[in-house]
Simulated assay, not measured.
Amino acid sequence: MKSQPVFALAHLLGFDLMPRIRNWKGLTFCRPSKQAEYVHIDALFGESGKNVIDWELVESQFRHLMRVAVSVREGAISSSTLLKRLRSGSRKNATYTAFREVGRVIRTVQLLRYLSDAPLRRRVTAATNKVESFNRFSQWLGFGNRGVIADNDPAEQEKTMKFNALLTNAVIFHNALDIAEIARQLLEEGWEVAPEGLAHISPYLTEHINRFGEYSTHELGIQPEAYETTLDVDFTPLREQDPAAAGFGQAT
């Protein structure tokens, strides 16, 4: 339910949102009308006459939907803020409900495309794997404080995320240069390097990276001097001192 406005906003902004579908059991396709029935896939749409799109609501709220989309495109409101409001929006709100209806339409179309197009499924899976690998690599580099952003200031949070993204891209660039250099060396030695083979090499390599730096350990072999249990101090004058003069006299 919460993902439906996301499909709507992506469509209004001109994006073709195609997430990878892991679990189909909880997904219900939407019918364009109560009379719509399908020979081989009607079970995907649930009970006959149910899960029908409210086109009249979409038409009545179309102007508001476009106004919101233009506001996001022009930067008057961020997409994250809008989606947060839509996710927490009341179903009694007509604009929210219209976003949900458009999202149901777009999601149903995308699910049908995903179901019927095997090459599309492979492209979506490959793209999603790359994104997930990048996120894991970025989290691996952001190991400080276990990757938790503890600051409550949004500006500091954004700064931390941007610094982490900058570091991640810098390491990826360095890895790509190393991979290219090794490929050139192999070619000079007479090895055959096929583009298909290079395509399987990921720039998210971590084995050669020392996140914690290098530390000198030559002092580990130095033996410390023996520990002296007694101090070369004569405490006799302190023991013989009058307790009252030392400030430990009895209270009067």
Rank of each mutant, 00 (worst) to 15 (best):
Q35E: 15
P32A: 01
S78C: 02
R136A: 15
D242T: 01
P5S: 04
R91A: 11
R20S: 05
T236V: 09
S133E: 15
Q35S: 13
I209F: 07
E219I: 07
D178G: 00
L120V: 11
G144H: 09
S80Q: 14
S90F: 04
E56G: 10
I182W: 10
A94K: 13
A94Y: 05
R31D: 01
N152E: 15
G75P: 09
K130G: 11
P243G: 04
W191L: 00
Y114M: 14
D42F: 08
R100Q: 07
Q223K: 14
K159M: 12
T95S: 01
A244F: 01
A127S: 15
R239T: 12
V193N: 02
F134L: 15
G26A: 12
Y38S: 07
A245Q: 15
L167C: 05
V52M: 07
D178T: 03
Y114D: 03
R73D: 11
T252H: 01
I209L: 15
K159N: 09
D151P: 00
G26R: 13
G49D: 04
Q223E: 14
E225D: 08
I209M: 04
K84C: 13
L27T: 05
P224H: 06
T108C: 04
Y204N: 09
P224T: 05
I41V: 08
E196G: 13
M18Q: 15
Y204R: 09
R22F: 13
D151I: 10
N175S: 05
F7C: 04
V68C: 05
D54P: 02
T97K: 11
L220V: 03
H40D: 11
Y96Q: 03
P5K: 10
T108G: 08
S78Q: 12
Y204G: 04
E47L: 00
G49S: 05
A251I: 09
I209Y: 04
G75Y: 14
T230S: 11
Q110S: 12
E37T: 15
A94I: 05
V68E: 00
R113Y: 00
S48R: 10
T217R: 08
A245R: 07
Q157V: 08
V193T: 03
T236L: 14
L198W: 03
R20H: 13
I77C: 05
E47A: 14
F163I: 09
S133T: 09
E207P: 00
T95I: 13
A246L: 14
R63F: 05
A194I: 02
R211P: 11
W191Q: 08
V39A: 03
